[in-house]
Amino acid sequence: MNIFRLAGDMTHLLSIIVLLLKMNATRSCRGVSLKTQELYAVVFVCRYLDLFTNFISLYNTVMKLIFLASTFTIIYWMRFHKVIRVTYDREQDTFRYQFLVLPCLVLAMVLNSEFTVMEVLWTFSIYLEAVAILPQLVLLQRTNNIDNLTGNYVFLLGSYRALYILNWIYRFMTEPNYRQYLVWISGIVQTIVYIDFFYYYIKSWRNNEKLSLPA
C-alpha cells in the first residue's frame, strides 16, 4: 500500500461521506443522480463478489463493505426516505442505464483476462465504473444552482481517480511484473471524463463564484 493508493481510497471514502452528510443534514438529494448511485451499486456488487472467495486483508474487506453499505444507504434514502425522496430531480435525471450497461457488458465479454463468470463480472465492473459518473455530470449540467456539497462530491470522486493513476505509476516503478492494462485504460478514460468538470470547478473556486456548468 503506497501513499497515493491510501490517499485515493480515503478521498473516495470522503466523497461518499460528504454525500451522506449532505443528504442527512439538508434532508435533500437535490442535484444527486440516482442513476449514478445505482450504477455504482452494480459496480461494487459485481467487483466485490470476491468477498466470498478471496481474502486480501482486513483493510480491503472493511473498505469493500463500507462502499457497499454506504451506496445502498444513499439509494435507499433517495428512493424511500419520507422527506429525501421528494427532493429527487426525477425529471432531470433521465440518462438511460442501458446506454452504459450494455456496451460495458459486451466489452467485458470480449475483452477480459479469463472467460469465467467471476472474471467477466469483475471486468464489467471496471468498465462500468469508468462511465458511471456520466448521469451525475449530465444532471449537474442541468442544475442551475449546484450547491457546494454536490460539487465537492464530484470533485472528490475525480480526485480519487487521479490519485489511483499516481498509485499505478508508483507500483509500476516499484513492483516487478505489475501490469493491468484493462484497469489502466479504463481508469484513464474515467479520469478524462472529469477533466471538463475540474476546469469549471477550479475556475469557479478561483473567481469565488457559484459553480455552474455550461450546457
Binding site: 493508493r5 470476491d50 483476462s113 484493462l182
Partner: peptide, 10 residues
C-alpha cells in the same frame, strides 16, 4: 488478453 491481475485494489 493474457494478464493475471492483482485484485488487491478497490
Amino acid at each position: 488478453v493474457a494478464e493475471k491481475i492483482a485484485k488487491d485494489e478497490l
